[in-house]
Amino acid sequence: MNAYYLGIDMGSVSTNLVLMNPDKTVAHKLYLRSKGRPVDSLAAGFCQLTQQVGPYTVLGAGVTGSGRKLIGSLIGADIVKNEITAHALAAVTQEPEVRTVLEIGGQDSKMIWIQNGVVQDFAMNTVCAAGTGSFLDRQAARLGIGIEELAGLAAASQHPQRIAGRCAVFAESDMIHKQQEGAATADILWGLCKALVQNFLNNLAKGHAVKGPVLFQGGVAANGAMLRAFQEELQMPVKVPRYYDVMGAWGAAILAQEAVAEQEGQTKFHGLDAEGPGVIESFICTDCSNACQIIRTRGAVWGSRCGKY
């Protein structure tokens, strides 16, 4: 039976799984839409993975992504780590010389600066989620095109429309006005990609020099138009790594390997219970007027402001 390190990226939009060989290469990967039910989609992911791969042994498990705490406590992860560290680690493993990582996920966007394999600085969008994957998804849906077709359509643009990229709400009304004035869909889409890239760099780069090699990862890197917009704006080559869509999960698997080595080779992984989501309970703590919602799983409890839980 094959043995792998398991990496899970429990993102807002997608659930990504990676099975990694002990030599840090990716053996299998899976990219699934989360659809707002993290535990269900993880269970579905495990099923699909077993169908693809056959029976396998887990040497260690790492979890990252916004749902990492919940999933980590449910499956007995060896390590639960933030997305920045996971993404950077995978980028360095893929491209040891990498200096800049651009990452656009479902709800957040980040930029990571790396030197000699160590993260020097990072920036992440703060108050709003404008310019992230879910916004592109929504605009494609509004125009009635699949997100996969967006790049091809934008490529046909002759005269890109200027779209206000600062705020997603402004961008949407701007796009609607342009379309009502008769602008071609291709021009609007290409204009939107350019606006998003400009907004991304204005918000995150903030005076940081962008040095190559540059890697573009996260689900949005599949979008050729966004890649082209980044290359035009930065005026340098931008590479999309082979496993761009599961870099976080890959990083989590690498972290799991490190963690298991520190635990003398023993993994804490026990997988999901057959009863699945049934093991989560939540209640409202009434000890003070904050009325926090407390979440409890078999392994952990969290959610209070005062630190009681």
Binding site: S66, N82, Q120
Partner: peptide, 29 residues
């Protein structure tokens, strides 16, 4: 930078802080 408004969910803040502390530790190493 942490810009605060009426947000009450904690996952976003925790992620940024963890990543920041992690980075500072690795930079020191």
């Amino acid at each position: 930078r942490l810009v605060l408004d009426e947000h009450s969910a904690q996952a976003g803040l925790q992620t940024r802080l963890e990543a920041f502390v992690d980075m500072l530790k690795r930079r020191r190493m």
